[in-house]
Design a protein around this nucleic acid. Structure first.
Lengths: 123, 123
DNA sequence: TAATAATTTAAGCAAATACTTAAATAATGA
DNA sequence: TCATTATTTAAGTATTTGCTTAAATTATTA
């Protein structure tokens, strides 16, 4: 488990390697955050939920279970992950919880949504 | 395993549900593709590799192993995933394979990169 | 041709993921 | 207060993921 590889290529550009290490040092927090968002959205069910919310303003877990033909607990657990990352919020109306998108990180997700919409196949 | 849930809320908006199903039908291929890209980028190691490639034009597996302090096979397996999704390509120079970014899907990844760069902490 | 170097591929394994079913919360209404 | 509804939480499990080590490829050079 010891690791001190150091690229063995004769032509390895040490300045470039040092610059890369520096780059990662300066961006590690951002990379961590962006990759969390990507991982959250990198699931078809969750991306569908997010995309629907981008079009419908708000929907409840029961709606998603119906639309996606999945069990309610399965939906609920996906919702939790999205809430943990902080891209959705909820409002209660009686027994029903309505979920909606938060603006947070909408530049990345927004780009994804417009991409999904761009080459939409109108049947 | 039978599922025919149909949202039981009295207030469920059937038109909205139908519209959502329609939306997903029209976009399922796109959603599948985008979520594949997101899943690929939703890993810190891979996002680091992609981000470095966005700054350095090309690097080899050995470089990444050095910079990220990881084993070469581990890097190689990440590289394969990125190649499978089609966001990188390679050029051989002797025994060394140099990897670089392809433009494909760069609007989503590009947004992620600029996001990473935007609030870069200059140490 | 043999030895070495850069990389990939394969096999094995621990941890994470995404579902299942059952039980727990929370709000409504008889 | 009791039953019902919407939802979440928990426990169990099969699949996927991301590493490890060892073996196989591919190219260089002595």
């Amino acid at each position: 488990m010891k690791l001190e590889i150091i690229c063995t290529r004769a032509e390895a550009d040490q300045k470039q390697l040092e610059r890369c290490r520096e780059t990662l040092n300066e961006t590690s927090k951002n990379i961590e955050e962006i990759s969390r968002i990507m991982a959250m959205a990198g699931n078809e069910v969750r991306l569908k939920i997010l995309f629907l919310l981008s079009q419908e303003k708000e929907l409840c877990p029961c709606d998603f279970a119906d639309i996606l033909e999945m069990s309610v607990p399965a939906i609920s657990q996906h919702i939790r992950k999205m809430k943990d990352v902080g891209v959705i919020t909820s409002r209660r109306a009686g027994q029903t919880l309505f979920y909606s998108l938060l603006d947070k990180s909408s530049d990345i997700l927004g780009k994804a949504f417009s991409n999904i919409n761009d080459n939409r196949k109108v049947a």
